[in-house]
Design a protein around this nucleic acid. Structure first.
Lengths: 273, 273
DNA sequence: CAGTGGTCTAGACCACGTG
DNA sequence: ACGTGGTCTAGACCACTGC
């Protein structure tokens, strides 16, 4: 076991990446801890692509090199590159467009934009455009539970944002957002309020942090008095509480968010399969 | 345009399905309505496989023929069959097991079982086993909204089931389930109560109805008096309301369900990407 | 050992978008 | 006309399962 490169029947391809800035070889550290090991070639290519994305070799919205170019760079067949890209496209990390190329997913698109906002109006098809109001933005020390979710140390620098989303003038979503301070150095309330458009697009262009996926835990809770006032409902009225942890490349958590949703004219939609 | 079989460079394969019970040819009705048309070979194979599943040629839990056999039957290469199966496996319709074969997904498995119950305990890892109590089961006429969701006519025969799920003695989920009467002919309260195990497994073995996927709409609502009593919470306490429409092969809706969840010790988990 | 799915390759041709 | 991704094929070999 533990032969990550399954004995190539041709030339060696141990250190194939020469076109880039001089990265490490392809073979994963196999002899290290007693871990599993053996990953097929296409998955090693996938990891290399993820590393390139992570260090910003290709920016969101840009095209990555063509399949043939990548095949040449990595010394593998086009089919192997293709399978690696297939998986990244299935994860919404990359986006294929026939005849044009393969692009890095970006939050500057209505399509992606509404993948992360699961709230839909009860009547009428697609979600109405939301008005966003920043209530607060300051740097704080990360409390214990937030720190654990963000995989930083309690007391480390963090950014706390509170904001209100309204649809057609009706306040609907109250979000409390925690970000690791290290990744969001220049984030100020002023810059935040100047920003139009979705928050994740702002994080992407402003700080190079791409949200790839998120885990959510949902509950029904009674509205506290202060929340009730902001959302213009009665104290104790049922709200949906959405606790989200968002991840970027490499399963690294980069945002913790607690949302409180009014669900009297909207609902949270999901697909299970 | 409208050449669904992209000019095979070899022998004709217009009516390749001979091994089966004599189905229609592969080519989709192209000259019909001004619809789109052109679907790649592997997708046509996928549709054929879905049709076989739908008419019960292979039952849940059974193995389907090997890739080579299917390739021979459909007169295509193994790679094309493989791609068709890949998509069905991604949809959780089929399940590949290396060295053993490809199997029809079944709800008689803990793994699948908890794909459709999104409720997880706040403490402790995997969901505890639930105790199920049938409160009611009778045949009724489908009300308008249910009929619309089930794509039947209002007033058509339907089955109404109400049941309570408890975890460790704590009543937690109150479900109201509507099924099209035609598909669930012999379904009686007696048979239902004899059944142990998950409902969807019962539907599968008892009535040949396989739930493949579901759409859900979630809301926070106050507990009505009667519901509150059953779930042992205060009247008006926040509950999560989950409206589900479940589908079987071919996007056919076969169940409408409204669940009311206590979320004081459990939460609804989701992944968004 | 035989049979299954899993990986990898090489090459041909198709469909799409852009000059 | 060209370059991109999309489809399809044929064949080799690997990994896993069970006899």
């Amino acid at each position: 076991m533990v032969n990550p490169l399954p004995a190539p029947p041709r030339e060696s391809r141990a250190s194939a990446d020469t076109a880039e800035g001089g990265a490490s070889g392809r073979a994963p550290a196999a002899a290290a801890s007693g871990g599993a090991a053996f990953s097929p070639l296409y998955r090693q290519i996938k990891d290399l692509l993820l590393q390139s994305l992570e260090r910003g070799e290709w920016k969101p919205g840009e095209a990555i090199p063509s399949e043939l170019e990548l095949a040449a760079r990595f010394q593998v067949s086009q089919g192997t590159v293709r399978k690696a890209i297939d998986e990244l496209a299935a994860d919404n990390v990359l986006l294929r467009r026939q005849g044009k190329g393969t692009f890095v997913a970006t939050h500057h698109e209505a399509k992606v934009r509404y993948r992360f906002l699961r709230l839909a109006p009860d009547e009428g098809g697609e979600p109405a455009p939301a008005e966003s109001r920043i209530l607060e933005c300051r740097r704080v020390r990360a409390p214990q539970d937030v720190a654990r979710s963000l995989e930083i140390r309690p007391g480390d620098s963090a950014v706390l944002i509170r904001r209100l989303l309204s649809f057609g003038g009706v306040p609907t979503v109250l979000d409390e957002i925690w970000l690791p301070g290290v990744l969001f150095r220049g984030l100020t309330q002023e810059r935040l309020m100047r920003n139009q458009g979705p928050l994740y697009a702002f994080f992407e262009t402003g700080f190079g942090v791409s949200m790839i996926r998120a885990d959510e835990k949902l509950r029904a809770v009674p509205a506290a008095a202060d929340v009730a006032e902001i959302l213009q409902v009665a104290t104790g009225a049922p709200l949906m509480q959405v606790d989200r942890v968002s991840y970027t490349y490499g399963e690294r958590p980069v945002e913790v968010r607690r949302g409180l949703y009014r669900t009297d004219r909207h609902h949270y939609r999901t697909r299970v399969n």
